[in-house]
Nucleic acid binder design. Structure first.
Lengths: 231, 231
DNA sequence: CGCGGCTTTGATGTTCATCAAGTAAAGTGG
DNA sequence: CCACTTTACTTGATGAACATCAAAGCCGCG
């Protein structure tokens, strides 16, 4: 991780609209003065489960995974998040410690604002409160919904679901470079690395995808959809 | 469902402390004037997934299940909730429609407050906002945490986990009447009814529990714990 | 260039879902 | 309130789905 020297003007930041647009200049000054900006490289840890929560963090750019480690040392990935997802928002208001770890899949720019500043803003500006609640609600619903979808499928359906997710929601393309290893893909859909790979190989043999290392091209999207919907 | 005639004085309500304690008398009057109270019997539906959200609802008394129905008509239970858990809180601030269904396991008293009143209160009272966020955060974390714990276990561990949950968190006793059917227990831990029953029968044969119909008595709690922790 | 982590495939066994079939309990309508 | 119908509960047999173990090639990085 390195502290960003080249601090980007917040006026041009997408979050100015998403979260801060209703703040007065004075209120926004509070954010800015308690804000720091960081850049993380792939595999770096942004948040460690169990750490004390002192800042509210959000992604300006990049891709991260949100996960928990169980007592046997195995990780379970809860979600993959992009800018707009407030990565520690869920725990911030009920816990003193982080409930999930967050690490970096693709180079990520993070803004961190002192948690006390967020509380101050909630007190000062009710529109801001509503926005925060809206984002919390949205993230919680999304995580729960995704786990629900994954849970009711078996292996083929799960892999298909995640490939669709990556193509449709992350990259908006049928061809992309997988941001996660096969093991991580397994951790995301609750199956072993071997079966994850086997299933992807099967999709390739069936002509649903092309695949070379981390590069994936979904050549028969309709059939992928069908597998995803069937099971 | 019937509308409660015998409206209980809110001053004596546990939620006066949990959620409303910082409201002024005037603010509290807003709640009261837009509030209605209902009583539901077992198996009645309080909230239907997809319905429009017009009220914020919370349990005064009782036990409910929160669930989603998949495209094949199968239910998956997300959580079992008691008073203090705000049953549609999670979706309220990001969705126009309910994301989960809620139905009754044990006779339940519900208070419903118009959603607009909640928004008004958020605007009027920032302490109230913080409380709402705290509860949202807590519920989301709890649902996600439970699914995480269930997911990493296999059948025996899952059943053991749920029996512990019922004994420790719902009834505070080793002997209780199961509030859910075997099928519902299966829906809660993502396994078939048959295997759920088989596993419970096994626990009985092994002398971990006694069981007669819906009545369960955990006679060897240490061993149940061990099964729960092992797998 | 060598070491560790990632990827891949095959063989094997375990876990679990499904099907079947019967008993028990609970709800429903005359 | 009893006959009837439906839903819940239970056990066994079977096979499918999946985890585990093993072995080997590959890739990237210090």
């Amino acid at each position: 991780m390195k502290i960003s020297n080249n601090i980007i003007n917040c006026k041009s930041c997408v979050y100015r609209n998403l979260l801060y647009e209703m703040l007065s200049d004075e209120e926004y000054g509070l954010v800015n003065s308690s804000r720091r900006e960081m850049i993380f490289k792939r595999n770096e840890l942004i948040i460690q489960e169990g750490d004390e929560i002192s800042e509210f963090m959000y992604l300006r750019k990049g891709l991260v995974k949100l996960y928990k480690t169980n007592s046997k040392g195995k990780d379970q990935i809860l979600s993959i998040n992009r800018p707009g997802d407030f990565i520690n928002l869920l725990s911030i208001f009920s816990n003193k410690t982080q409930q999930y770890s967050v690490s970096v899949l693709e180079e990520t720019h993070v803004c961190a604002v002192k948690i006390d500043t967020i509380f101050d803003l909630v007190k000062l500006n009710s529109e801001f409160s509503i926005r925060v609640m809206n984002r919390m609600s949205y993230i919680a619903d999304e995580i729960i919904h995704k786990r629900f979808e994954i849970n009711q499928r078996q292996v083929k359906g799960r892999v298909a679901y995640m490939l669709r997710f990556l193509a449709e929601q992350i990259y908006n393309k049928n061809e992309f470079r997988m941001p996660i290893t096969r093991r991580e893909l397994g951790e995301l859909i609750s199956m072993t690395t071997e079966n994850t790979i086997r299933t992807m190989s099967e999709f390739r043999k069936d002509g649903i995808i092309e695949m070379e290392g981390k590069n994936v091209n979904i050549v028969d999207f309709d059939r992928l959809k069908k597998v995803c919907e069937m099971g």
